[in-house]
């Protein structure tokens, strides 16, 4: 028992970030499952991180309320953004959302109350590990159930063929937007939790690198189901800690593992759980992300 406690103490940060990253991976999974490549979730995370941290730090909001307000702020901003950028598809959509992330980063640097380049320090560390994993549980459940509902089916249809989806009466734009806004809400929740898990936040944490990292979690894990993104986040977050003893060889091995996964499970780790279905889908050339 004591050993377990010691393990938790030593790896608390890593364990916490496994959960936070899993939530982030699920946030981008929603749009990926709809066949849309968006890279705005790091920015939504940042918006909510700053929003909620400022509320607890400067306005004395209770922690849960600050989290909620941060996430809702991110979702509120995602709505007009989504309505604008979903005229675009594929790589153009990705670039547009990435550009939005850059705007957010620069905006944070420009506004004095955010502490600009220094970031915010002294954020009350309200986040407990159980907050993270309870959130992950609820979000996983909601995503998994949505996936098998009529909404999930409509998202699949849009991913497979937008023209045919519209012909079935599916309001394609609205469904894309719903996935995007829900993703922003979830990313925002993760951002608030992450900000209160750390002592400090900085604008650079929510830039290009983070946007790509979130995408990589979901892609390496696989998007056919909700387990994929979680697997991706767990493996890729735990790997650096697990490989710690290798010291300078760590990054080499980590890169090699990533390459092997992408080559042998190109549709993600989750496809290893159902190899036959994955093979059938590959055989018919089904859509991943448009």
């Amino acid at each position: 028992m004591e050993e377990l406690q010691a393990f938790f103490d030593a790896y608390q940060t890593t364990i916490g970030f496994i959960g936070i990253n899993a939530i982030l991976a699920l946030s981008v999974w929603l749009t990926l499952y709809t066949g849309q490549l968006t890279l705005g979730n790091a920015a939504f995370m940042g918006i909510a991180a700053y929003g909620s941290a400022l509320l607890t730090l400067k306005a004395g909001f209770p922690f849960p309320l600050a989290l909620l307000c941060g996430a809702l702020l991110a979702a509120a901003i995602s709505l007009p953004l989504g309505a604008t950028v979903f005229r675009l598809r594929g790589v153009y959509l990705a670039i547009a959302t990435l550009a939005f992330g850059e705007v957010v980063r620069v905006a944070i640097l420009a506004i004095p109350i955010t502490g600009r380049g220094q970031g915010l320090v002294g954020i009350p560390p309200k986040t407990e590990l159980w907050h993270i994993f309870a959130s992950l549980l609820v979000i996983t459940y909601v995503c998994a159930r949505l996936r098998i509902s009529s909404v999930g089916r409509a998202w699949s249809a849009i991913r497979e063929d937008e023209v045919a989806a519209a012909s079935q009466g599916i309001p394609v734009r609205r469904y894309k937007l719903a996935a995007f806004v829900l993703g922003a809400l979830i990313a925002g929740w993760a951002g608030g939790i992450a900000a209160h898990f750390n002592f400090a936040i900085q604008p650079d944490e929510y830039g290009f690198a983070r946007a790509v990292q979130i995408l990589v979690f979901a892609i390496v894990g696989g998007i056919p189901n909700v387990i994929g993104p979680i697997m991706g986040a767990v493996v890729l977050t735990a790997l650096p800690a697990v490989l710690q003893p290798l010291q300078e060889y760590r990054d080499i091995l980590q890169g090699a593992i990533l390459v092997i996964v992408i080559v042998y499970a190109p549709r993600g780790l989750a496809t290893l759980l159902d190899v036959r279905r994955a093979a059938r889908l590959r055989h018919v050339g089904a859509q991943d992300v448009a």
Binding site: S150, A154, S156, A157, D161, V163, Q168
Partner: peptide, 21 residues
């Protein structure tokens, strides 16, 4: 033909029922 190729035959018809469900 524009079917939802990666979905099952049943799912295709379920999507056809979208406006009725």
């Amino acid at each position: 033909i524009r079917l939802f190729k990666g979905l099952t035959v049943l799912e295709n018809v379920l999507l056809g029922r979208y406006v009725r469900s």
